[in-house]
Amino acid sequence: MLSAKASFWLGVKDVSPLIFGILPFALISGIAAIEIKLSIPEAIGMASIVFAGASQMAALQLIKEGSPILIIVLTIAIVNLRFLMYSASLAVHFQKLPLAWKVLIGYTMTDQAYVLPISKFEQTDQIIKHWYSIGVGATMWTTWQLGSIIGIFLTGAIPEEWSLGFAIPLTFLALLTPAVRDKPTVLAALSAGVVAVAGHGLPNKLGLMLAAFIGIGIGMWAEMRNK
């Protein structure tokens, strides 16, 4: 059984390759915030308080278009609804923790800080789960804040042709493949992907949620048929 310290550092180690995908994402979100004329404190506030890249980018787009506050906040909620699902999925592992730990793990939850721990917990029971999770979460948080701040001050210095934005879907792709393990999960991923492409034009990122729900439904249906 690994100690608290060793579990924490294993989390840091496991997430470290992802830094190369997160850093460009954070840079871009910092650059975008300044280009949309947010002040520096606002840009830093968004990175640290919302701390959820995809929803930050969506919110910036809507702020730029002059959308009403209610629509922007709703959009953030819709894009981040997947965290509710992550939270439910992780909860069974953290049921006995004190409230402060749950707050900390909740605040630092990201796609990465969900997928890595949940996959790890299936492979081994030799780690202290919350220390491993916070190792991943703290690394993600630090990378995101540093990257955002660098982006805020770099605005205009990174050429568009570098297409750093492409690192964003690649990061999600790298997380997706370990989550696709058998026929039902493959079907869930494919159907969600197709619906997301078809529903891309829907307002307020609705296509994203629709895709997730349909993918989950198809996956459950395939699993039932297999039995």
């Binding site: 964003i168 879907p169 493959v186 869930a188 969600a192 619906v195 997301a196 296509g207 349909i214 996956g219």
Partner: peptide
Amino acid sequence: LVKRALRFIPAAALSALVFPAFFY
């Protein structure tokens, strides 16, 4: 039902983020 849905969350949610970025 919700418990059974949980294991499909990462596959479906991440895939919905990835696909549009490649096809558009």
